[in-house]
Simulated assay, not measured.
Amino acid sequence: MEDKQGKVQVGGSVGGSVNAGDVAGSSSSHVGGNVSFAINELPSSSEADKPGIKELLTQLEAAIKADPNLSEIDRNDALDQVKDLAEAAQNPNDGGMKEKAAKAGRMLGRIISGIPTATQLVESCSKLLPLITKAFGF
Rank of each mutant, 00 (worst) to 15 (best):
T119K: 04
T119F: 06
F37T: 13
G105V: 08
V18Y: 12
Q90Y: 09
L129V: 12
K127W: 01
P130I: 04
V82L: 00
P68H: 01
A102T: 08
I64V: 14
E87R: 11
S113E: 13
K65P: 02
G6C: 02
K50C: 00
I39V: 13
A62H: 08
V23S: 01
G96T: 05
Q9S: 08
K100N: 07
M1F: 14
N19I: 06
N93T: 12
A48N: 07
L85F: 03
A63H: 02
F136R: 04
S28L: 13
G95R: 10
P116W: 04
K4F: 10
G16P: 07
S13K: 14
M107I: 11
L60R: 06
S113H: 03
G21R: 06
S29Q: 15
D67H: 03
G32D: 01
T58Y: 01
K7V: 09
I64Y: 05
L129E: 00
P116V: 10
S36G: 11
K7Y: 12
K65V: 11
I115H: 08
S46Q: 12
D74W: 00
S17F: 11
L79Y: 02
N76G: 11
I64D: 02
V82I: 06
I111N: 03
D3P: 00
K83T: 14
L70A: 01
N40W: 08
S46H: 09
E55W: 09
G109Y: 02
A88C: 04
M107E: 14
G16F: 03
S26R: 14
F37I: 14
I112V: 11
T58A: 15
L70C: 08
T119V: 05
G114F: 06
K98V: 03
K4M: 03
L129R: 00
V35Q: 00
A24Q: 12
L108V: 09
K134A: 15
G12N: 02
I111V: 09
V35L: 07
G109Q: 03
A78P: 02
S124D: 07
A24M: 10
T133R: 11
D84E: 15
I64R: 00
K98E: 05
K83M: 14
A78H: 00
N19Y: 05
T117R: 13
G109S: 05
